[in-house]
Design a protein around this nucleic acid. Structure first.
Lengths: 261, 261
DNA sequence: GACCGACGTCCGATATTTCGGACAAACGGT
DNA sequence: ACCGTTTGTCCGAAATATCGGACGTCGGTC
């Protein structure tokens, strides 16, 4: 069950190609999530290595349960309302996330910029909450999509409890290569982390996206370990003055979210 | 797949008690959603009519996929982060809901009261989006929980495209009985609907909860049919003046959400 | 109008998953 | 310390869900 670099993942190939329905369904949902777009049944079957007849059977069952929805009438399927209901139950059940929802919504509304709440999952960075700002230019929320730690501002906070050695052992080497092929220098990265520890926030500019600046502040547990971050995603040409105000906002929010103050 | 009055639902009992894993999983998730609280595996097995050994097997699989999470260490399970990711994908994929999220978040933040976005599913009323206000007294969001139409303010808008006869045929008779046993008079209900059509909003007080007032405005499709509502849930002693301001806010939001203006 | 590819359904065989029950460990009350 | 209850794992048997492939439709292309 380890996530290999490749996006697509055939279902476990044991001796025969036969698999349990539930494993097929998990592969199906992961596939839809990674594509993030309504997809034709035959394509899902091919890309997940599931027999076509099996996939049709399963999709029918899931559509009936509202886990999936037939879209457009062009034969594509995508997630259905049941996933939203179950997901909301999850959000409500996790104390930190429930509080973070309030903070993120509040600062996104008052500041007017996109705000996010992020954590680590394994050795990857993950957006858990995303509230778009008034500026509606970035539509794609990347909720639940794993991203290499060095690509992000928050990532520099989320590993700051580790030593330099531990950090480099923890992050897969290939994660230092940006989507455009550039390489992030490891010592610059470690220096960012050191500076962040003393400053109490991180700023990155033009990292994965040339015209975007990220501002992030750490949510820490009572032991001082960074367990999550809250951050703004803003245009790189935002004035320094405005950015400083946002940093103060983030620090205050992050402080309120840190358990045991 | 009809929802009978009884909350619990054994999995399809054909000739033998045997069922597909996927059907067991659907029953499991529905059970968790209806209980809305982390639950012990053995209890889920009993309440869904699933053999214990089968349930353990399935839960292990689902925990590994992050569909479920083991909680507390007391052997209970509940929804996991994957549900949130899939649910977010669903929200982003439905145009009206994506826009409604912005409106609901905005009015909840600016007005400071709990705002919701609601639709019909079958012959039941359903909360799709819920944004708690500053007043944090009502914790329970009821997202995805089906409620009888006559119990709600929004319900009076959502059926207003039907004639009186059609309405009474559409709503199951038992749905006119409130949780406390009181009966909602059918002609009063129909009168509410008539008035709502001309006024463009609905107000109900002390319906399902003695101290709560609901204010709702209709989102209409180009044909004028009410396809959803946006509403506030406020204390019954809110001043008339404040309520009027909220009604104006709701009408404006509902207008913005109505497709094709 | 014939051909080709994609879509969706159906059916029988068999590899496999579900199921029941047994078992050990952990728990908790007296 | 004793005993009844609950939790979680394991195993073999057999009921059945998955799979492959065949079939009829539909639409577009030459």
């Amino acid at each position: 069950m380890k996530s290999n670099g490749v996006a697509e993942k055939q279902v476990e190939e044991k001796s025969t190609g036969r698999a349990r329905g539930i494993d097929r369904v998990i592969a199906l949902m992961e596939h839809l999530h990674s594509r993030r777009v309504p997809t034709r049944i035959a394509d899902i079957a091919r890309d997940t290595g599931t027999p076509r007849s099996t996939m049709y059977e399963l999709v029918n069952t899931l559509v009936e349960a509202r886990w999936l929805e037939l879209r457009d009438g062009d034969g594509t399927v995508y997630f259905g309302p049941a996933m939203h209901y179950y997901g909301s139950d999850y959000l409500d059940s996790v104390d930190l996330i429930r509080k973070a929802r309030v903070e993120v919504a509040h600062i996104a509304e008052t500041v007017g910029e996109t705000a996010q709440f992020c954590t680590l999952e394994g050795d990857k960075y993950l957006v858990v909450l995303n509230e778009p700002g008034r500026r509606m230019f970035r539509i794609s929320s990347e909720i639940g999509i794993k991203v290499p730690i060095p690509w992000t501002a928050s990532g520099r906070l989320l590993v700051d409890h580790l030593s330099a050695d531990e950090i480099l052992r923890f992050i897969p080497p290939e994660d230092f290569i940006l989507p455009d092929g550039r390489r992030i220098a490891e010592d610059g990265f470690l220096e960012d982390i050191r500076r962040a520890r003393t400053q109490g926030y991180v700023r990155t500019t033009a990292l994965v996206d040339r015209f975007t600046t990220c501002l992030a502040a750490p949510v820490r547990d009572p032991a001082g370990r960074c367990i999550a971050t809250i951050c703004f995603v803003v245009p790189a040409d935002t004035t320094e003055e405005a950015q400083q105000a946002m940093i103060d906002t983030l620090k205050a929010s992050a402080e309120r979210l840190s358990p045991g103050r």
